[in-house]
Nucleic acid binder design. Structure first.
Length: 567
RNA sequence: GCGCCCGUAGCUCAGUUGGAUAGAGCGCUAGUUUCCGGAACUAGAUGUCGCAGGUUCGAAUCCUGCCGGGCGUACCA
C-alpha cells in the first residue's frame, strides 16, 4: 500500500529529528481536499507543539530527510506545517495493475492476525426475533466479515437466552393452555401466546414458580418441554439467519453455563471480590468514580444467579477455549453499565487475561414519530415480517423498473435489493445514534443507499456484457482524465478504509467510502466512454471498471450485502 | 441526585490523530440523452455546528458551566 509506505518512511524521517516521537500517531491520510494533493499528514504540528518546537521548521528538516522520489511527484509543506504528498501517476497505474492480481484488491492482510470473538444477536427462546435484534445481528455480522477480510481469525458466538424465570410460565402454559394445531402452524406465536396468558394471571404465579423449580431440579418432563421449545426456537433463528446470510461458529445458550455459576460466586467471595449485602451477593467498585455507587449483583437474595454471573462464566469459557486477543460484545447502548461492571469484575478475577474486552454499543431504532419503533397497534415488529416487507417493497420496485424479467428472477433480485437496503440503512449511520426507520428512504434508490451502490455495480457489469474482457496481464494502464485519476486514487484507499472500520468498529465509514466510490464511478462513466474508445484507452478504462466492480462487490460483501448483475 | 449518549441546512443524517473554505441525500430552482442502464450526471440557494466561556497557530471535534432531549441507575437481560 502506497499510503502505508509513505507513512513508514515519514516515521523514519521523523525519528531522526525527534527520538521520542509517538510513532503510532504519525499518520498519513488521503487529503481532505484534492487540491492539496493526494495524501496529507498533520502529525508534525501536534508533535512540534507538544515539544515547544516550531512546526514549520521541524517539517522542513523532516522533509529534507524524506526519500520519496520513487513514489511522489512532490512533497509540500503548507500553512503551519501540513505535509502534502502528490503521487506520481505511474505509481498509481502500477498499483492498479498489482490490484488486478490480488484476491481482495487494495487490501493487505494484517501484519499481526488476531483471534477475535464477536458476541452478537443473542435472541431469546420462545420469543419472536424482533427489530431489537436486527442492529446487533447486522452490525456483528458485518464486523466479523470485515475483520476476516483483514486476515483475522474471527469466532462468531451467539449467546442464546434459553434460561430464566419465564420458563416456569412457559412450561405451565405448555401443560395447560397449549393449542397443538397453533403450535404446528406457528410455534413461536403460540409460545408467545401461552406465556402472555399465564403472565397476565396473578393466580397462576405460584404454579409457574413450581414448574420453574422442577425444571431447575432436573425434572424429566419439564426438561423435555424446555428442550422442545429450544428446538422450535432454533428453527426460527435458522430461518431468519438464512435469509440474512448470517452464520455463527458457536451457538450456546445461557443454560450451558449453569453448572459453573455457583463455583464462580464462591470464588469471587473467597477472593474478597464479592460480599454479602441486603441478602444478595454483590461486587462493589469503591475505587471507581463512576461505579462506586453502582454495585453489581452476582447472586440474588433468593439464591439464583443473574446475567452478570452467566456472563462471567461465559467469559471464562471463551478465554479458556479460544485464547482470544479481543472479545467484542455488540449490544444496545442501554447495557453500558452492565458491561463496565462485567469487564471490571473479570479483571479483578482473572488478572492474567491480557486481551481486550470491548462493548460495541448502538442506539435505538425509532419509528417515524421519533418513539421506539413499533407496529401501529403498539406491538414490537417481528423480524421475519420486517424482512417480508423489505422484499415485497423491493419486488414492486424491480417490477416497475424491469417488467420483462422472469418472475423467479425478480424474486431473487428483490431479495438481494430488499435485504441489502435494510442492512445498509442500519450500517450507514453512526451506530451510536438512534436512527429513524424509514422504508421510503432506504428503498428510495437514491442517495446513500444500498440500491444506489448495487446499481453502480450493474452498470459495471453491463459494460462487460457488451465488450470482451482484455487480458489483464497485458493491459497498459494510462490515466489522463481527471475522472479517471479521481476514481483510481479512491479505489486505492479501500484497504485503509477497512482498517479504520476495524479500529473503531464503525461500518458506516465503509458505507461512506462506497458511496463516494459509486459517485466517482458515475462521473467517470458520464465523461469517459469505454466501449467506444480506441483499443488502448478502452482497455485501460476497463481496468478501472473491473476494479470498481470488484471493490464494490467486496465492499458490499463486507457489509453482508450481495450484488446482482441486473436489477 | 449520579452516570452515559445526543443537540450540525426545512427533513433524515455524515463529519477519520483537533487541521485547510462544515458536507451528502431528500425537498426546492435550472440544466444534461445521435453515447456503455436517466434508478444517472451537472449547476444553484439554504448553517449563530443548542448557548456561554476557556485551551490552541487552528475547535462541530478537547475542557468548564448552562439549556433541551433520550437512556441507565441492586436483585430482568
Amino acid at each position: 500500500m502506497i499510503q502505508s509506505e509513505i507513512e513508514s518512511r515519514l516515521r523514519q524521517a521523523v525519528a531522526q529529528h525527534v527520538d521520542d516521537a509517538e510513532q503510532e500517531k504519525i499518520l498519513v491520510r488521503p487529503c481532505s481536499d484534492p487540491k492539496h494533493g493526494d495524501f496529507q499528514s498533520n502529525a508534525l504540528m501536534a508533535l512540534a507543539k507538544k515539544r515547544g518546537m516550531n512546526p514549520r521548521h521541524l517539517a522542513e528538516k523532516v522533509v529534507d530527510d524524506l526519500r520519496l522520489g520513487d513514489i511522489c511527484q512532490s512533497v509540500d509543506i503548507a500553512g503551519p506545517g501540513f505535509l502534502n504528498f502528490e503521487i506520481k501517476s505511474k505509481v498509481i497505474e502500477e498499483a492498479l495493475a498489482a490490484a488486478l492480481k490480488e484476491k481482495i484488491p487494495f487490501v493487505s492482510p494484517a501484519s499481526e492476525p488476531q483471534a477475535i470473538i464477536i458476541d452478537f444477536s443473542s435472541p431469546n427462546v420462545a420469543k419472536p426475533m424482533h427489530v431489537g435484534h436486527i442492529r446487533s445481528t447486522i452490525l456483528g455480522d458485518s464486523l466479523a466479515r470485515i475483520l476476516r477480510m483483514l486476515g483475522h481469525k474471527v469466532i462468531t458466538d451467539n449467546h442464546i437466552g434459553d434460561w430464566g424465570t419465564q420458563f416456569g410460565m412457559l412450561i405451565l402454559g405448555w401443560k395447560t393452555k397449549l393449542n397443538k394445531a397453533a403450535l404446528d402452524s406457528d410455534p413461536i406465536s403460540e409460545l408467545e401466546r401461552i406465556y402472555k396468558e399465564i403472565n397476565s394471571d396473578d393466580s397462576l404465579r405460584e404454579a409457574a414458580r413450581y414448574e420453574l423449580v422442577k425444571l431447575q431440579q432436573g425434572d424429566e418432563e419439564n426438561l423435555k418441554i424446555w428442550r422442545g421449545m429450544i428446538e422450535l426456537s432454533q428453527q426460527q433463528f435458522d430461518r431468519v439467519y438464512g435469509r440474512l446470510d448470517v452464520q455463527f461458529n458457536e451457538t450456546l445458550g445461557e443454560s450451558f453455563y449453569n453448572p459453573y455459576l455457583e463455583e464462580i460466586v464462591e470464588e469471587l467471595c473467597a477472593k474478597n471480590i464479592a460480599g454479602v449485602s441486603e441478602g444478595a451477593i454483590v461486587v462493589r467498585f469503591p475505587d471507581d468514580d463512576q461505579l462506586n455507587d453502582k454495585p453489581a449483583i452476582v447472586r440474588k437474595s433468593d439464591g439464583a444467579s443473574n446475567y452478570t454471573t452467566t456472563d462471567l462464566a461465559t467469559l471464562r469459557y471463551r478465554v479458556e477455549k479460544w485464547s482470544p486477543n479481543k472479545i467484542i460484545y455488540v449490544t444496545d447502548g442501554r447495557q453500558q453499565l452492565h458491561f463496565q461492571q462485567l469487564f471490571k469484575i473479570f479483571r479483578f478475577w482473572n488478572n492474567q487475561f491480557a486481551g481486550q474486552l470491548q462493548h460495541v454499543w448502538f442506539g435505538s431504532i425509532l419509528g417515524p414519530d421519533g418513539k421506539p419503533f413499533k407496529t401501529r397497534s403498539g406491538e414490537t415488529v417481528r423480524l421475519d415480517e420486517l424482512l417480508d416487507e423489505a422484499e415485497q417493497r423491493a419486488f414492486k420496485a424491480v417490477s416497475e423498473k424491469n417488467p420483462e424479467l422472469e418472475e423467479s428472477e425478480k424474486r431473487t433480485i428483490s431479495k438481494i435489493i430488499g435485504i441489502g437496503a435494510l442492512k445498509y440503512s442500519d450500517l450507514s449511520s453512526n451506530r451510536q445514534s438512534d436512527y429513524v426507520f424509514d422504508w421510503d428512504k432506504m428503498l428510495s434508490l437514491q442517495g446513500n443507499t444500498a440500491p444506489y451502490l448495487q446499481y453502480a455495480y450493474t452498470r459495471v457489469r453491463s459494460i462487460f456484457r457488451k465488450t470482451t474482457e482484455p487480458n489483464w496481464d497485458k493491459v497498459v494502464i494510462n490515466l489522463d482524465a481527471a475522472e479517471e485519476l479521481s476514481l483510481a486514487k479512491h479505489l486505492m484507499s479501500f484497504g485503509h478504509t477497512l482498517e479504520m472500520v476495524a479500529e473503531d468498529n464503525r461500518p458506516n465509514y465503509l458505507c461512506n467510502y462506497l458511496y463516494d466510490l459509486a459517485g466517482r464511478f458515475s462521473r467517470f462513466y458520464e465523461s469517459c466512454p469505454v466501449i467506444k474508445a480506441g483499443q488502448a484507452e478502452r482497455e485501460s478504462r476497463l481496468v478501472l471498471c473491473e476494479l470498481t466492480g470488484r471493490v464494490l462487490q467486496r465492499g458490499l460483501d463486507a457489509l453482508g450485502i450481495q450484488v446482482t448483475e441486473v436489477m
